[in-house]
Amino acid sequence: MKVEGVTLRFGGVLALQDVSLHIAPQQIYAIIGPNGAGKTSLLNCICGLYRPQSGRIQYGDVDLVGLPTHHLPRLGIARSFQNIELFRHMSVLDNLMLARHVHMKKNIFSALLYWGRGQREEIRQREFVEHVIDLLEIQGIRRQTVAALSYGLQKRVELGRALATNPSILLLDEPMAGMNVEEKEDIARYILDINEEWGVTIVLIEHDMGAVMDISDYVAVLDFGRKIGEGKPEEIRENQAVIHAYLGQADER
């Protein structure tokens, strides 16, 4: 995925200023930065929820700017949200099944009849969803309504829902926010599994520096809408601009 010179303005506020990223396939690419740096805005631009005033975002040969959001899963792009945006009143299974939406052969009449093809289609998709359930170890809760689950599990289900679209690139917006150490370790392990076993490119926004430095292949740093540094984790650790803007306090621990 290539992001080139993206600028996003909300009235007088410059949310993103000439941001360029190059995300190589099968990388774990972390985007870090203080609150309000524009990380989520960047994801929203990629997803077509915001439309940048200038710049290009390309995935493969496809230009993503101006593309309707519902086309994303077809291109193999999936994302999770910072504040959990699951379908709260559906079961875990139905949340994951919804992610199979674009892969289904659709026909309202076969849906109303639920006979023959409609039923076979449901079962075929269910088999894929069960792989995701196995990978994320959420077998025990598949029948439960999402609203009844703990925060950590909801985050995991949201990761699962993004994964169930069978993406080639996964945009994760703070998948570890608000978790305890064990839950963070679990999520980190799942992310590594997804990346290594399924060969999915990961774009990761995260505040936990330890986790970011441990699992990512490449890190970009945003501050006030500008990219102030990028490189391998060990390079970022040494980068003066980054330390100044962000890591300085974290390193003093």
Binding site: T69, H70, F81, F87, L98, H101, K106, I108, A111
Partner: peptide, 23 residues
């Protein structure tokens, strides 16, 4: 219990997420 009904419920619960999921 099929994709259409699930898409309807998804629109009710979280329309942006539904859109990102391809609805």
């Amino acid at each position: 219990r099929t994709h259409i009904g699930r898409a309807f419920i998804a629109i009710r619960d979280q329309d942006i997420a539904a859109e990102v999921m391809g609805v």
